[in-house]
Design a binder for these strands. Structure first.
Length: 411
RNA sequence: GCGGACGUAGCUCAGCUGGUAGAGCGCCAGGUUGUGGUCUUGGAUGUCGUGGGUUCGAGCCCCAUCGUUCGCCCCA
């Protein structure tokens, strides 16, 4: 037990955990491709300014959760806490603001120095879908619909609800923010300590509070609707309309707020009650100002990120590992022949393993434990006649098959 | 960062009011000649998370520390 363990908040992906994890990523990748998204990859670490600038200096992620350090050259480097800022930086760095829109699929590890919990790790993984450079509400609906399709393909949609909100444009948000500050300031005595701090930094977040007392105050808080500018209201209408065209069920929730500062207009979360405190499984929104923060032109964008670990936990059953065919040589001469058979099967795309330890009984046991669907038994007698014994391990049926026909028979 | 629970073989766990560790599963090897899944016999494995303390003696008591977990916070 004194052996080295993975660092706090990190974990190894092996066996079923690995199968769940990669099933989520592969499913998302496949569907995003069909929806017209191209996969990008950007560096795992970036100049600290990419995140400090992008995410906003009031967010907890920037203030106390980043893995930031000086590298050997003295530059301030940060392990990315999320993907979007790096994607926007890459858009600008590569001059792609000239060829918009860009539809991007992304997956990879992210890093946040948090207190670990189930569904919350210091190294965790996200899948992301972003449309860069598209100001139309149709883009919002398409991005959300793509996410919903992925959740359906994973079989978790039944446990998940789409909650939708608008944060309005900057004018709307500023007006609403002022109204909230007024309201909450008048109710300071009823607010929790946490919310008093939020009143200074990010009053919108109070709407999200789980504190019993806060909720009473929040119930009477102003809503954003009367503060929406005509443009912002029209935009939100468009998003809702297109979502129904995509046949995506959603509920409106005026308390949805995004954690990072770059969001405006559309905000949404796919939530579940199946994961305790980590209920948000996919979340995103519109961020029209982020590319400018990275030094590019004004570029309206919309996207979401989903936690791979959380989705993996929601999967009912992990996909079964592919069943191999076991090749079992009996005797020394047969080992050479077995290698030939392995080559042929694998070249034909058939997962195949050799079992060559112990007596035949052991080899069969191993084949069975490996989950093999069939065993190919090769002895001197068979080799001399150019055949093999092919045994179906599920039915127990065994028959003699010509070596040349094995691959076709098993394909 | 705050509060609660937990930490014993690879895994799941048991261990009575303190007397130097057990089960099931798994693993390894057998049950005679080239055939698995059932059955059966035998075997290996733990510095009882770590470090201190109390005691004649601690897996069981106390303290600290690390880790996991639940809630808060935050967020995917």
């Amino acid at each position: 037990m004194s052996a080295l363990q993975p660092a706090r908040g990190t974990r190894d992906l092996i066996g079923e955990d690995a199968r769940r994890h990669f099933h989520v990523i592969e499913t998302a990748r496949r569907i995003a491709a069909v929806w017209g998204f191209d996969e990008w990859a950007t560096p795992v670490f970036e100049d600290t300014r990419v995140f400090a600038r992008g995410l906003g200096d009031t967010s907890d992620v920037v203030m106390k959760e980043m893995y930031t350090f000086a590298d050997r050259g003295g530059d301030s480097i940060t392990l990315r806490p999320e993907a979007t800022a790096g994607i926007c930086r890459a858009l600008v760095s590569n001059g792609l603001t000239q060829t918009l829109p860009q539809k991007v699929f992304y997956t990879g590890p992210m890093f946040r120095y948090e207190r670990p919990q189930k569904g919350r790790y210091r190294q965790f993984h996200q899948i992301d879908v972003e449309v860069l450079g598209s100001p139309e509400p149709l883009a919002d609906a398409e991005v959300i619909a793509c996410g919903w399709t992925i959740l359906q393909a994973l079989g978790v949609a039944k446990d998940v609800t789409l909650e939708l909100n608008t944060l309005g444009d900057k004018a709307s948000r500023d007006a609403y923010r002022a109204a909230l500050v007024d309201y909450f300031s008048a109710h300071k005595s009823s607010l929790s300590e946490d919310s008093l701090a939020r009143l200074e930094r990010n009053p919108l977040r109070i709407l999200d509070s789980k504190d019993e007392g806060d909720r009473h105050v929040v119930a009477g808080a102003p809503v954003i609707d009367p503060h929406l500018t005509p443009d912002a209201a029209r935009f939100y209408d468009g998003v809702r309309r297109h979502l129904t065209h995509f046949s995506i069920p959603f509920v409106e929730n005026r308390r949805i707020v995004r954690g990072l500062d770059y969001y405006s207009h559309t905000a949404f979360e796919f939530v579940t009650s199946a994961l305790g405190a980590q209920g948000t499984v996919m979340g995103g929104g519109r961020y029209d100002g982020l590319v400018e923060e990275m030094g590019g032109p004004h570029t309206p964008c919309i996207g979401w990120a989903a936690g791979v670990e959380r989705l993996a936990m929601l999967l009912a059953a992990p996909p079964a590992p592919p069943a191999p065919v076991a090749v079992i040589p009996v005797g020394e001469a047969a080992e050479a022949a077995a290698i030939g058979v392995l080559q042929v099967l694998r070249a034909a795309g058939i997962r195949a393993e050799a079992e060559y330890r112990g007596n035949l009984k052991r080899r069969m046991e191993r084949a069975n434990r490996a989950g093999a669907r069939a065993a190919i038994i090769l002895g001197d007698d068979e080799i001399a006649r150019g055949v093999a014994q092919l045994k179906n391990l599920a039915s127990g049926m065994q028959s003699e098959v010509k070596l040349a026909e094995l691959a076709a028979k098993l394909g």
